[in-house]
């Protein structure tokens, strides 16, 4: 887990309706839940709706929480469902490529620019961050949600599979596909940066 600063909560107190414990829990999780929602939806107002609905649902369903998964996984599950529901409301028809497990061959890399060696400052610009966000938005939502839970929020493969109701194999397949697609998107941008840098060098 990346999140090491999230305190432990007493499920008994939460289920007993203890407001102090509930407020403590909301305080600890509202940031990560908002981040997940924002990166799923790409819109801050929609993300705030998902944020509120997630905790309202958590409050409503806390009595049914059985501890089969960890509390944070359970909360991420609610948030992911809320975000996916909102996305599907926006666009009711599911495109063909939304079933990423169908195609076993997956995704073949097409760009081989070795942009790893770019100077660190090139990765820290506002434009670079914008490219990272845009690449996420280009992913099909079924891949996007897996990538966000695993690689941004730092859930394990197992917790990701529990949060999404997918098999671990499906999570791994989708994760790899997401990572490769993102790599491809970033290779376009950073590959251009690399060419630019090399041209600058030859001119000097």
């Amino acid at each position: 887990m990346i999140e090491t600063n999230i305190p432990e909560f007493s499920i008994e107190l939460l289920q007993a309706g203890d407001r102090v414990e509930f407020a403590r829990m909301v305080e600890a999780y509202y940031g990560p839940i908002y981040r997940l929602a924002l990166k799923m939806l790409g819109d801050s107002s929609d993300a705030e709706d998902v944020l509120q609905n997630t905790f309202l649902k958590a409050l409503q369903y806390l009595p049914t929480f059985e501890g089969r998964s960890s509390f944070s996984t359970w909360l991420y599950r609610i948030a992911a469902n809320e975000a996916l529901m909102l996305l599907r409301k926006r666009r009711p028809t599911v495109p063909v490529d939304e079933n990423p497990d169908d195609d076993e061959d997956g995704f073949m890399p097409a760009q081989f620019s070795d942009w790893c060696c770019l100077p660190e400052q090139d990765f820290l610009t506002a434009e670079s961050k914008r490219q990272l966000d845009q690449a996420i938005q280009k992913l099909p939502e079924t891949l996007r949600v897996v990538f966000l839970l695993r690689d941004i929020e730092g859930l394990s493969i197992r917790d990701t599979s529990e949060a999404l109701g997918l098999s671990e194999t499906a999570v791994k397949t989708r994760l790899l596909r997401a990572r490769l697609q993102l790599r491809e998107s970033l290779s376009t941008y950073y590959g251009e940066r690399l060419t630019y840098r090399m041209n600058m060098e030859t001119q000097e």
Binding site: K39, E48, C116, F123, L132
Partner: peptide, 23 residues
């Protein structure tokens, strides 16, 4: 190159995409 740039991709998201400001 694919392995290195994929690894770098994950690293970049890990380290820069996590900073989000609430409205």
């Amino acid at each position: 190159v694919v392995v290195d740039t994929t690894s770098k991709t994950i690293y970049l998201y890990h380290h820069t995409a996590r900073e989000v400001e609430l409205p």
